[in-house]
């Protein structure tokens, strides 16, 4: 029983990281109809940026983190939108999807060829060791991950629901045309979404890289999980991404421990396929109205 609870807690922590990526993924989809297949590389690039700021520039962790957020907003937010999404989205979803696939390969190989093909260590911001709650032992890293990811999600939700800008962004997400009629600066709101996605990716990188190690292909796995999570939870619901992320994380852990470590990914994957086929709007999603 204690094991089960422990597995669920550590699964939730991993799932929280998936959820951060999935959240960015769904935000982009809602605001601009972008399916970003380079989402995993959006986590890998900040990991290397942070390493650069820490190791080469010799900056402390938090400065490196803030600087990386800034660079990511410019590079993975603004530039990504202006150089790729804006010119492509007019042609429909598919050319953009193909272009993000190209981006994913391009960025990965660029890091591999230009930086290193080998994995690099990345220190956790949380201490090693275990927190004992009676018989239950939880690592500081899992607790820290849960708290930080939770804080980010809550503040994002508050921003989206309580501020004028946030509500304007939601209005754009729901219906671009009527938002425009209401006098909302649609272009700006969409840009905000891209910036938020960039920051979420940096946080995910901060949390996941100590375990995954910084490597050019580290984004493949996390990008895929974020994708599962977004679809399972509901492509057009931010809450869906959270549920999906946690579900994937917990299912992986439980499958790994009780069914077969070799099929760790299997159950989440089956759920993903079942959702696509039987409930394509996702567990929490509403039926798609957007005309693609």
């Amino acid at each position: 029983m204690v094991d089960l609870v422990q597995l669920i807690i550590s699964g939730t922590a991993t799932g929280a990281i998936y959820a951060l990526c999935a959240l960015g993924f769904t935000l982009l989809w809602q605001a601009s109809g972008t399916i970003n297949f380079a989402q995993g590389e959006f986590v890998m690039v900040p990991a290397f940026l942070m390493l650069f700021f820490i190791n080469t520039a010799g900056l402390p962790m938090w400065v490196a983190f803030l600087l990386t957020c800034l660079v990511a907003m410019v590079l993975l937010g603004y530039t990504f939108k202006r150089a790729m999404v804006d010119p492509l989205i007019r042609h429909g979803v598919i050319p953009l999807v193909i272009a993000t696939l190209g981006l994913s390969i391009g960025v990965k190989q660029l890091v591999k060829a230009g930086v290193t093909a080998q994995a690099q260590p990345f220190n956790s911001i949380f201490p090693d060791g275990l927190l004992s709650l009676g018989a239950l032992k939880v690592s500081y890293m899992d607790v820290g991950t849960l708290v930080l990811a939770g804080l980010i999600v809550i503040s994002l939700q508050t921003f989206l629901n309580r501020t004028v800008t946030g509500r304007a962004m939601q209005a754009v997400a729901q219906n671009t045309d009527s938002a425009r009629v209401l006098g909302i600066n649609v272009a700006r709101m969409v840009l905000y979404t891209f910036l938020i996605n960039a920051v979420l990716s940096v946080v995910a990188a901060l949390l996941v890289t100590p375990t995954y190690l910084a490597k050019f292909d580290m984004g493949e796995s996390i990008g895929l999980k974020a994708f599962y999570a977004a679809i399972i939870g509901g492509f057009n619901q931010t809450r869906g991404a959270l549920l999906g992320g946690v579900l994937v994380g917990v299912l992986e852990n439980l499958t790994g421990a009780y069914i077969s470590p070799a099929y760790k990914e299997g159950v989440a994957l089956m759920l993903f396929l079942v959702v696509i086929i039987f409930k394509p709007e996702g567990l929490l999603g509403k039926t798609e109205e957007r005309k693609v």
């Binding site: 991993t14 992986e252 470590p261």
Partner: peptide
């Protein structure tokens, strides 16, 4: 007897099995 995948990133379940 815990098998893991080549390129595996998450060892939490494997380590837990060892502890158990």
């Amino acid at each position: 007897d815990v098998s893991t995948d080549p390129g595996q990133v998450d060892f939490s379940a494997a380590v837990l099995k060892v502890k158990q």
